[in-house]
């Protein structure tokens, strides 16, 4: 009886006991090679995606703030400013600093502070995401390349 393909016996005849019929038909080396190919393909895919993103974006013009998917505010990237963005319920906040054409979250009221550690963003499409506050701060192209806004 072929082990792979077709439905396996899920009723567990007594002599098999608990163990499911092992799928070890193919040689270990062959599987290892398949594993490496898969890993290589995924790494290449990640690299290609990354390069494509780098190539397709330009310096942004506007910092847009989204809470729960709603655009709540936007600031020009070329005007240095510091704003504290409170969540709708007032329970938490993100401090957004815009300076030298880059936007950065320097402090936040969320427990993990991942958004603070994400660093500054300046190019179109880059974003700082704070999941606990359901806030997305992203760079947008402004009027010049205003395609695909959110």
């Amino acid at each position: 009886m072929p082990i792979c393909g077709g439905r396996r016996n899920t009723r567990f005849p007594p002599h098999v006991g608990f163990k499911e019929a092992p799928l070890e038909k193919r040689g270990k080396n062959r599987k290892k090679r398949a594993d490496l190919l898969l890993i290589g393909a995924l790494v290449l895919l990640a690299g290609a995606l990354f390069l494509w993103q780098l190539a397709s974006r330009s310096d942004g013009a506007v910092v847009a703030v989204y809470v729960d998917g709603e655009r709540t505010a936007s600031y020009p990237l070329d005007a240095d400013t510091t704003v504290t963005l409170y969540t709708p319920d007032g329970g938490s906040y993100n401090v957004l600093v815009i300076s030298d054409g880059a936007a950065d979250v320097t402090d936040a009221g969320c427990p993990d502070k991942l958004c603070v550690h994400m660093g500054a963003i300046r190019r179109d499409g880059e974003a700082i995401i704070c999941l606990p506050n359901r806030t997305v701060i992203q760079i947008e192209g402004g009027e010049t390349s205003g395609v695909d806004v959110g």
Partner: peptide, 9 residues
């Protein structure tokens, strides 16, 4: 949930 396609970045 966040309604932002940019997350794919």
């Amino acid at each position: 949930l966040l309604g932002s396609r940019r997350l794919i970045y």
